[in-house]
Design a protein around this nucleic acid. Structure first.
Lengths: 191, 191
DNA sequence: GATCTATTTCGATATACTTCTAATTAGATT
DNA sequence: AATCTAATTAGAAGTATATCGAAATAGATC
């Protein structure tokens, strides 16, 4: 769903989220009314009713018909039904947020822990640690072999305790290690 | 529709009339999320998200599942569909306002033109005049005969120009007059 | 048990919106 | 043309509520 569609949806709910506007819709569902009539029925001043009607009109929910000085407003039922269908279709509901960046969480964590390209400290929470490790692993090329020294040097560029981070990378499967001294590499099924 | 039902409807729209709550629903439509995740995704602080979730929960739109310190919220799709059906059924739309007092218009006119039981002035608008006449005619008993003097006295109690009002009462059929001098009375089919 | 983490509650602030009065516009009536 | 009526527009005041920081709560971890 695009931001524009979300705005439309939002305007719809905002417009209907007022007791007097709901009552106006109810009154107009019976028959058309002038502004003065509505004001009297709802015990509001004309300008207030005028304001509410303007909002309903913006949404296309009501029509106006001028008759002398009076302006008779009536409900556009078709528009109401149309909005209903559009808004509450299942597809729409489940697609409300395609445009939200789901990596925002990752970025938040990164911005919290990384300043000027350096890791400030190692997060204790596993969920956050994984975000950091995922960021760190991008400095290694898939398919290439690294000596322990290589790995330490790369990590040290962003954090002093390279041994700790190297261990975490291995523990969480971001790096594989050959116990025979064959060095480190990114496993095929790396996260 | 009762006031209570209108309130429910109103709460529904008010709850959905917020951009971030719509986004939360969208996010939860994919999968459950913790408060912290939602806060990061929406770029809001936890208390704010907590507040939004509480409102959604009041409406029954979301469920909570506790897991350690985390609380995972998820969408109750059934509730959403249920509300949709209830809210947008045609019967409901057309019955929104049965409880609105349609005599309020009359009362408005009366309060505008009558102070302390006295008629301030005669409205020029026919619609309003009729309201006044309907009020005035209640001072006469159905089935009883009145002389012109009786009529004048009764009217003069509320307005000086009794001749004018008497004429209007007759013109609009609130009073019948016997051309032979037999006086005035309320006609059977009086409005 | 003390500490840490995620969430909620509380209190304050800032913003959006409803509602009103006053002034303006447009149409009808004299 | 002048007046009157209905409605809208403009501006102001009050109310509701979204948002945040600080404090409190509850669960997990050490």
């Amino acid at each position: 769903m695009t931001q524009k569609e979300l705005d439309i949806l939002l305007q719809f709910f905002k417009t209907l989220a007022d007791e007097n506007r709901l009552k106006i819709i109810g009154l107009l569902s019976h028959r058309e009314h002038s502004v003065g009539e509505l004001a009297a029925l709802l015990d509001l001043k004309e300008p207030t009713v005028s304001h509410h009607l303007a909002r309903l009109k913006t949404l296309g929910l009501v029509d106006v018909r001028a008759d002398g000085n009076n302006r008779f407003y009536r409900l556009d039922r078709a528009a109401l039904g149309r909005l209903n269908q559009e808004i509450f279709s299942t597809e729409r509901l489940t697609s409300w947020v395609d445009d939200i960046d789901v990596d925002a969480w990752d970025r938040k964590v990164l911005s919290d822990y990384i300043h000027d390209g350096k890791l400030k400290q190692i997060p204790t929470k596993e969920k956050k640690l994984i975000v950091i490790l995922r960021w760190l692993i991008t400095r290694f090329e898939p398919g290439r072999r690294y000596t322990e020294r290589d790995v330490n040097d790369i990590i040290e560029g962003v954090y002093d305790d390279y041994a700790m981070l190297r261990r975490e990378l291995v523990d969480f499967g971001f790096l594989a290690r050959d116990s025979g001294g064959g060095g480190y590499w990114i496993p095929e099924d790396s996260v």
